[in-house]
Design a protein around this nucleic acid. Sequence first.
DNA 1: ATACTTTTAATC
DNA 2: ATTAAAAGTATT
Length: 668
Amino acid sequence: VPQVAHVEPLTSARSLRGPFDYRLPRELAEGVGVGSMLVVPFGRREILGVVVGISERSELPEDRLLAPLRALELGAPAEMVELAEWIAREYCSTPARALSLVLPPDARRRLSGRRRGPRAPSGDPVRRTVAREPPRLSADQRTALADVEAALGGGRPAQRLVHGVTGSGKTEVYMRAAAIALAQRRGVIVLVPEIALTPQTCMRFVERFGETVAVLHSQLRPAERYAAWRRLREGSARICVGPRSAVFAPVGDLGLMVIDEEHDASYKHEGDPRYDAREVAAERARRARALLLLGSATPRAESFDGVPRVRMPNRIDARPLPAVRILDMREQPHGLHPLTADALAAVRAARGKAVVLLNRRGWSNFVSCRSCGSVWSCPECDVALVLHRASSVLACHHCGHREPAPSRCGACSSTAVARHGTGTERLAHEVGAILDDGGFPVFRLDADAAAARGALDASTGAASVLEGFGAAECGVLIGTQMVAKGHDFPDISLGVVLDADATLRFPDFRAEERTFALIAQLAGRVGRGGRGEVLVQTIAPDARAIAHAASHDSDGFVADELERRRALRYPPFSTLIRLTCSAPAAAPAREAARAVRQRLPSAWRTGAETSVLGPAALFRLRGRERETLLVKAHERRAAVRAVGEAVSAVADSGEHPQVMFSVDVEPH
DNA sequence: ATACTTTTAATC
DNA sequence: ATTAAAAGTATT
């Protein structure tokens, strides 16, 4: 019986889609199945393709089928091919792009690899189990675990949200759940926001479970990454800990999928396909009949609404959460409030530790000429450049453009350059001037400090700053939102948030949720193992997000938030689909967006159940003008298909040269 | 008639 | 995406 392989070619072209059929000769048919990678003749070239199906016949006559040239050693698991097809549909992408997510790392460069056994896995350093006695569980942990165990035992898909304050011991619950899954001979995936900021979580898994853990992180070299992937694929490792992309780890017979800090923005992928690892995890868990276990101190409205919740309201050390005090800055919006200055001085006097969060990098927001008023802005983007004093550059925080810091105005030659606003660099400098009279060090943690510190990359640098602060006897840690994440120091007695409403001013329906989470996360890091206080400086002291964060009321906040979203028909009460058209000039981008809008179902324009907003202009980015459409969809699958078809029609029409189209389902 | 550019069609 | 054939255009 002839065997036919349905093959999806791995090209980045949107318009080229398979599957294409190939005849499998007997000697290949043995080892080739769904997920196998084949080098196939295609036109007059050779390309790499993925087998997405096997059958006995083709729509084409047999004499038109060619045979693959060879098969690669290792492909993706068959069920991951199905998941990739789901992603291509759900996120308006292509099979090839979605498939490349689930293939062995570096699959494309492996094209040269013939069908031979690769060298023995090397690298991928994994410590042996320390066999440390697991700690006794708190009452909260026992309750949560009992619930999780019941959900795991069923062998049917289930979801749980562990809503536990920072320090309530969620990681221990994850590990006990993982142990149960392993005992059932099922695999485990643990997603964490960013390895560099959560080294403790990863280390704890490695210490508890040893060689059955494969940790995927950004610093792995290609050979190490491949070795880790292979250990999972072959089943010698059964637990994978990693960031967003680990949702595609080749873990067989998955029993448990954990998403730690489920609210974290890093779970959303910003390239094509623009998938959300939380949604992919939910889909994968459902297909595998596994338990999806979300954890957060500040869950998203979506999870709160849709997932059965287990509360862990108490810290494991029984310490109360710190008092949060809102400092109204409307009278004098700049600098430190007198109470903040006093509190920092008191921490220094007591030789304690403080954390100060200011979500703005650099020395000054923007610089202008005192004489003619012109503002230094990015040549590629419509934004002001930020002054970085240590490196003496003006930098664009959107495209990475850098130029030397100016000494005189390019327009009028005045030498008076005004620096406006304060970022973390300046703040660290100023706080240092006040506090650092020897023996009370100031640590700075932001992307710049991390990059300067990290020998290999920024995440190493971030980890090293945190290590330094953790090891210090006393001091203050100043930085962007990075200071509110991951670390777990027992001796921080003061937390400060400056300009707490800055994140509220983003034109984004998640702005309030993000602001709430940021303040709540910082509060969670304060006062473990002792007394603590949090000060929040703001010119919006009555904002919901800030008021609820001050009273540690995440239930109340989410209840309000869900009400607002229902009224405005935002997720989870609709699906958002964002289309962005970009071009070197504004007019073609706008015309393309209008053309797509024209091709959308006419019922959407009356705004009944599904509605379209826009086109609206976005600021110029990387030299491209942008226009955006926003669809609030009632029925997700149908809406994604309709948008996809409209975009393909307009993009393929040839009437909009130089316009690039990007579709984002559930954008951030 | 010939060289060059643009359009269209196909890839199992 | 890549390629080649087809169709269209300017040049001798």
